[in-house]
């Protein structure tokens, strides 16, 4: 095999040439790369710039604008608010006004809506947890071959339209709907229950729509768990319930937290479900924000509501990100 003889010099890759410093011959490409590198424009920097700039522009700045407009005055016109700073008679005129926030406190409608949103989101999250945990557990402990298809079944409804799934519940829960017909047919009730357009329907709708978001993170932690731990516990004499409570449950805590936040945070600001399934007296803050914006056209107040809602949610969002980040770091290690 003559070409393998190291003493024979066939064209050797750049940089591997004997004796030469390992610098590739300077082609035009190298020169361009060199210049951009000196300007601090490495490929890596360029890659970072794209998504970073996008998120700053379309995610970060919008929140600053919401903050700004929440202290502007409403006005008739397009857009329906005043400028914050204006030159009036050669002087700077500052129009800052907290009446948007003021209204939040004056009218206890908003306070009630906040509290009711928290209550509804909390109870629905609990329902998702109670229903979702056994489901996630069952999938995680199923034979490995069956886990994929079962998981698929959980995700599948998500690929069909959210709106349509809520709509399906409208037809089930209405006065002459399936549920009432069934209950009356069984003789359990004699008058149809008023479920549609009530808080109960909202609980059902949120639990139903958000259930997969609870199951997936739960499954992820339960599946990673070492099942020999349970066998070891059983071997050491723990009863199944006891080992569930002392081993499985604590170890799945990250999944419980992640799943609960994934349900709770968006549920607090939910708009579609309360407006389709809730009654006119079902107060939820997302719905009030929508009404302020689209019906009253009071953008400053809508912004104030958004800022106040965000202030509620900053804590939970930070906890959620902490858990997200922990997974990322674990992955990177």
């Amino acid at each position: 095999m003559p070409a393998q003889d190291p003493s024979q010099s066939s064209p050797v890759p750049a940089g591997a040439a004997a004796g030469l410093p390992p610098v590739a011959p300077r082609t035009l490409k190298d020169r361009v790369l060199g210049v951009t590198r000196r300007l601090g424009l490495t490929g890596r920097g360029g890659v970072i710039l794209g998504p970073y700039a996008w998120l700053v522009l379309f995610f970060f700045i919008p929140f600053l604008i919401v903050l700004k407009i929440s202290v502007a005055e409403p006005a008739v016109g397009i857009p329906p608010f005043t400028k914050l700073v204006e030159w009036v008679d050669g002087g700077l005129d500052l129009h800052i006004r907290f009446s948007g926030f003021q209204a939040l406190f004056d009218d206890d409608l908003y306070l009630l809506a906040y509290l009711n949103s928290l209550k509804i989101a909390f109870v629905s999250t609990l329902c998702c947890l109670v229903i979702g945990y056994p489901m996630a557990y069952a999938i995680a402990t199923a034979p490995e071959k069956r886990r994929g298809p079962l998981l698929m079944l959980i995700i599948l409804p998500f690929w069909t339209s959210f709106l349509i799934r809520v709509y399906a519940w409208m037809s089930i829960l209405k006065d002459e709907g399936l549920l009432n017909n069934l209950l009356m047919g069984l003789g359990l009730i004699h008058e149809p229950l008023k479920i549609l357009y009530s808080d109960l329907a909202v609980y059902i709708g949120i639990t139903y729509s958000y259930l997969p978001f609870m199951i997936l993170p739960l499954y992820a932690t339960l599946e990673k768990m070492d099942h020999t731990l349970l066998e070891a516990a059983a071997d050491l004499g723990a009863r199944p319930w006891k080992s569930f409570l002392t081993i499985t449950l604590p170890l799945s805590l990250p999944g419980i937290v992640a799943g609960s936040l994934l349900v709770f945070i968006p549920a607090v600001g939910e708009f579609v479900i309360p407006s389709l399934l809730g009654g006119s007296d079902t107060l939820m803050i997302g719905r009030e924000l929508w009404n302020l914006f689209f019906n009253s056209r009071d953008w400053p107040s809508a912004s104030a509501v958004a800022i106040a809602l965000l202030a509620f949610l900053v804590g939970p969002i930070m906890i959620f990100q902490h858990f997200q980040g922990r997974d990322q770091d674990k992955g990177a290690a």
Partner: peptide, 16 residues
């Protein structure tokens, strides 16, 4: 040093 050349700052794809 590899073959007398200081390798500091030389990326993997340029090393012999």
């Amino acid at each position: 040093f590899i073959d007398g050349v200081d390798m500091a700052g030389i990326p993997p794809y340029d090393r012999p």
